[in-house]
Design a binder for these strands. Structure first.
Lengths: 175, 175
DNA sequence: TATTGTTATACTCTATAACTATA
DNA sequence: TATAGTTATAGAGTATAACAATA
C-alpha cells in the first residue's frame, strides 16, 4: 500500500444518515426495476439551459482532446486569439471582452508567459497597464491551434449538419 | 487591518518577469490606444463552442439569481427533477443520466439529505444500491423551483423570441 | 471479479477581497 | 479617489484513485 493512509474522516455527516439507511426499509416504490426503463427527464426537456450546458461540455471535451498535444485549453485558445488580433490590449480589456475574471487572467498569463507564448510589455501611455502581445513562438503555436480548432469545428459541423450549425451560430450570436 | 497578514508568497514566478517589466520598454505596437476601438474576436467568431459557453454562463447566472431565495442551483434542480420523475433510481443511474460524477453526486445528495429534501432508501433487490426518492418537503420545494425555473425560461424565450427559442431547443436536442 | 456507494486528493474555475502602484 | 495588475482565499466543479460492502 502506498503512503496514502486515509485521514481520520470528518464523521458527523455520515452518521446522521446511517440510522435511516441501516434500519428498517421504510418503503420503496416498485418503479425502477426491470429491463432498464428509459429515464424520464420531465421538466428539463423544456429548459434550454440544460441542453446548452450538455452541449457546451461535450464540445469542450472534444476541443480539449484535440488540442491536448499542444496543451491549449479552450480558455487559453480564446486568450491567444484575442491578443493576436488586438496586440497591445490591456489585461482588463481582455478579461472583460472574454468574460474572464481579472484575477484569473493573471494566472493564465503567468503560465502562458512561462511557456514563452505571451509578453506583458509596459504601456508607454499609462504606467499601470500592460500591453499584451504574443511572442513569435506564441503566434506559431496559435497557428497550429487554429488548424486543430478548425478540424474540431468541421467535425462538429458534420455532426450537426452544415445548416443547423449555421443556424445555431447565428442565433447564439444574437444573444 | 483584519487578521490576514499575507503569506511569504511563492516568489520565483513573479520574479522571472519583473526583469522584463521594470526594464526598458522593448517596443509596443500603437494598435490599441484611442477612443475604445472595438475588440476583434477573429477566429472565435466561427467557433460554436465559444458562443455556447457564453450563453450557458449567462443562462446559469440568471437561473441562479432567480432560484437564490430557495437555494437551488442548476445542478440541484436537475437532480431533484429526475429523482421526482424516476423514484427509486440508483445513484449510478442518476449520475450517468445527468453526466455528473458518481463521487460528486454523493456530496450533492448529502447536502440535499441534510436539508430533508431527498432520501436514500435501501434497495430491496440489490444491497449495494440506494433507491432515491424525494421527501414530501423535497416535492414541495421542487414545485416552487419549477415555478421559478419556468419564469426564468419565459424570460429567456422573450429575450430570444419564441421562434428562435424553439429552434434552439430543437437543434440542441438532436445533439 | 465487477459494481455501488463512498472518501480522499489534486487541479481548475468562480467569486471576493484586499493590497500595490500608478493615475 | 479610482483604476490596473496582483495575491490570497473559499467554494464549486472535474477527474482520479482507492476502499468496503455486495453481487
Amino acid at each position: 500500500m502506498p503512503a496514502v493512509k486515509r485521514a481520520p474522516k470528518g464523521a458527523k455527516k455520515a452518521d446522521t444518515q446511517t440510522d435511516k439507511r441501516k434500519s428498517v426499509p421504510l418503503r420503496e416504490k416498485p418503479a425502477r426495476k426491470a429491463s432498464a426503463p428509459a429515464i424520464e427527464f420531465d421538466a428539463l426537456n423544456e429548459h434550454l439551459g440544460y441542453f446548452v450546458r450538455r452541449m457546451q461540455v461535450s464540445i469542450f471535451q472534444d476541443f480539449i482532446r484535440r488540442l491536448a498535444r499542444i496543451d491549449v485549453s479552450p480558455a487559453q485558445f480564446s486568450v491567444l486569439v484575442v491578443i493576436s488580433a488586438n496586440p497591445g490590449l490591456s489585461q482588463s480589456e481582455l478579461a472583460s471582452a472574454l468574460g474572464i475574471e481579472r484575477a484569473r487572467l493573471v494566472r493564465m498569463l503567468h503560465r502562458l508567459e512561462l511557456r514563452n507564448l505571451t509578453v506583458r510589455l509596459p504601456s508607454s501611455a499609462d504606467g499601470r497597464r500592460h500591453a499584451l502581445e504574443l511572442t513569435r513562438e506564441g503566434e506559431k503555436l496559435l497557428a497550429k491551434a487554429k488548424v486543430l480548432a478548425d478540424e474540431h469545428e468541421s467535425c462538429l459541423r458534420e455532426q450537426l449538419g452544415a445548416e443547423r450549425h449555421q443556424t445555431l451560430l447565428a442565433i447564439l450570436k444574437t444573444f
